[in-house]
Design a protein around this nucleic acid. Structure first.
Lengths: 197, 197
DNA sequence: CTTTTGACTAAAAACGTATTTTGGTCAGCA
DNA sequence: TGCTGACCAAAATACGTTTTTAGTCAAAAG
């Protein structure tokens, strides 16, 4: 890694900590500079503006988030366990990163969804769909899931992501942490077996 | 209906219109009084305070909402169509009542979830679970759904409500109105058949 | 006795303005 | 190339003032 990149990463890491602690809007360029042991002006040598730093932090956060979830998923032997691990890990990780998430809501509410913020969320949503799609494909390959879903694996992934998100929001909003594993298990069971007869 | 109740209903109906038009917070007691053709003081003869009027309006709104959805559901011949109608009607109706909904978000966001507001939302959530539970039971009775779900019909309803809500939010947030019927259909299909093999 | 009202008040919201903070620029130092 | 302090315009904040608003009450109206 080039020296320039090291410093950039340094700044981003410091900014990340600050933003986790105080929230996005409360973190000033001064704070970030101080945390990096540099002058405020120096930040503008490495980054175009505040938004670029924000984006980098959020992207880093998103990457780490997916890294965590993927690691948990890949530990599992079969697609069914993967789905469960996906849900459980996601909720647990999200709860920790609640600060970052609350910013998303703030931003959403204020109505001014920056184009850039929309991009970030799309990136995140895409990541989720891709990960679910990956698990579904694995399930089909291992003959756990029917091959019928193969042609609609994309729309199905989108649908599943929405469903899972709904369940997660319920768990997080109402502090149903104890029910997490049960709900994940039930959701996956229904998904596999269906309720038809 | 007693004369007193008629006037109360009059006031509530006027308040409802105002709140739909201008939002909850922007509607003043003066406005409500004027709409009812009474003096502001008179409102306090019929209601304890502003919140009581708000609650009555929201409850009325919730009742009407469920009335609409139930009517659509009851028109269907089988449980599967009922589930689809439930989703489609809910989204369409919600889109119209967006003003009232936005208040819910505001209130939620500001962090100060009144005890009363929490009650209202619980009432709403319960209504949804009950309705889904009703459809599921119908499905079991008509042998469309497996009898296995009978003992867990309550937890299953809760789960399904969350899932459906997730899908709805995706549709509403991203204006995927054209995909509404397709998504509803797919969700129900998966729910019935499952993706296992 | 029931219903309605205008006058009134205290609290909250809206407003305007002075002050501070903050994002960003730039010339220049090392 | 890497970094800085001085500087500026714009945004956020603080604060005093005014206006609006929820709620009370004594009394009028029916």
């Amino acid at each position: 890694m080039r020296k320039e990149e090291i410093i950039e990463q340094d700044i981003i890491n410091g900014a990340k900590k600050l933003m986790q602690q105080y929230g996005l809007k409360k973190t000033t360029m001064e704070d970030i500079a101080k945390a990096a042991g540099k002058s405020k002006s120096t930040l503008y040598y490495y980054f175009k503006d505040k938004e670029e730093i924000f984006d980098r932090v959020i992207n880093l956060e998103i990457d780490e988030f997916f890294q965590t979830v993927k690691t948990a998923v890949n530990k599992q032997a079969d697609a069914i366990s993967m789905l469960k691990a996906y849900i459980v890990t996601k909720v647990k990780t999200l709860r920790d990163k609640a600060n970052l998430y609350s910013f998303a809501i703030e931003n959403d509410l204020q109505g001014r969804l920056n184009k850039e913020f929309t991009n970030l969320r799309n990136r995140y949503d895409n990541g989720e769909r891709k990960l679910i799609g990956f698990i579904l494909t694995k399930g089909v390959e291992s003959k756990l899931f029917t091959n019928d879903i193969t042609p609609e694996i994309n729309t199905l992934s989108e649908l599943l992501v929405s469903c899972i998100r709904g369940v997660e929001m319920d768990i997080i909003a109402h502090n149903k942490n104890k029910a997490l594993a049960d709900k994940a298990g039930m959701l996956v069971e229904i998904l596999i077996k269906g309720i038809g007869r």
